[in-house]
Design a protein around this nucleic acid. Sequence first.
DNA 1: ACGGGACCATACGGTCCCGTATGGAAGGCG
DNA 2: CGCCTTCCATACGGGACCGTATGGTCCCGT
Lengths: 163, 163
Amino acid sequence: MAGLAIEPLAKSLGTTKGSFYWHFRDREELISAALERWENEETDAVIAMLGPLAGGRSRLRELITAIFVTHGEVPDRSIGLAAAAGHPAVEEVLERVTRRRIDYLAEELVAAGLGEGEARHRAVLAYTSYLGYSTLVRSTPGALPRGEQAAAFVDSMMRLLTS
Amino acid sequence: MAGLAIEPLAKSLGTTKGSFYWHFRDREELISAALERWENEETDAVIAMLGPLAGGRSRLRELITAIFVTHGEVPDRSIGLAAAAGHPAVEEVLERVTRRRIDYLAEELVAAGLGEGEARHRAVLAYTSYLGYSTLVRSTPGALPRGEQAAAFVDSMMRLLTS
DNA sequence: ACGGGACCATACGGTCCCGTATGGAAGGCG
DNA sequence: CGCCTTCCATACGGGACCGTATGGTCCCGT
């Protein structure tokens, strides 16, 4: 996996490998811990985000706006994880998170008045678009709408998703 | 970068490093060559795919279907490249390819009758969705619609994009 | 005060990879 | 035949990283 090497990590924390290997048995164990933590934080963040919101369309809009527009500042680690797949533990968590997210989107779309099947399709569309958007944000941000263009993009997307 | 190591590559080709370093000066040069080749092949493939097709909506549909449904068999390397970004040469090519693809989609959508701005938004939506879809295909295919569900997904997406 | 556990640093061997050095084999050409 | 270019293999040094070994410090209970 990339981005989780223990020697550089230890150095960046101002400590050493010796310390690390006291707390973790393995690099495997570090990955598991990071993964578990990521999965929990991610669901917490989502729940916290949509808790105080009203139901239906506005909740969905808030979510989508937060995800697409704010994304530059608080990047999701999904993409890195997805790219670093091939690791069994990663794949397992990733699949679970993916399912939950798509299911949640589909539920919201049903609540917004769509039929079951169509809601699912659009949930997949929205979520895959989110993933691709994240990918582009970090690989080639120049090709993406930013600022008010991004807002207009979200507007268009919302209209499309809930039409 | 991941997946382009020269020692494993040489071994998998039944040759050695010595041979490699005769043909290429650097690992850098290999990456450049692979990148250039990828960019060309990719445009060729797209052009070849849409050449014999009729204009307007059917061309777009063909493209989208090919991309989403057939994708399991002939995976695009974009994702791997995008993930392996940070490399300047990769970013440059990737941004060029991304722009061209989104531009092309927007053109097709304009040809299908949409306004300029809306076409661009939907092109971004379609392309980011494609990228995310590809990511999920290789990371957690279980969370995606496959088979006729995939076809229904493409149907839904086409209706949405050209509505 | 002292033995032992918690916590951490240094040092080492092993693996995988990059890049270089060097020594051929095979074929055109005087 | 001798020679030179082309193409390739083996051997080496270096760096990044994993995991282990080993010793040192600090603190806590007795």
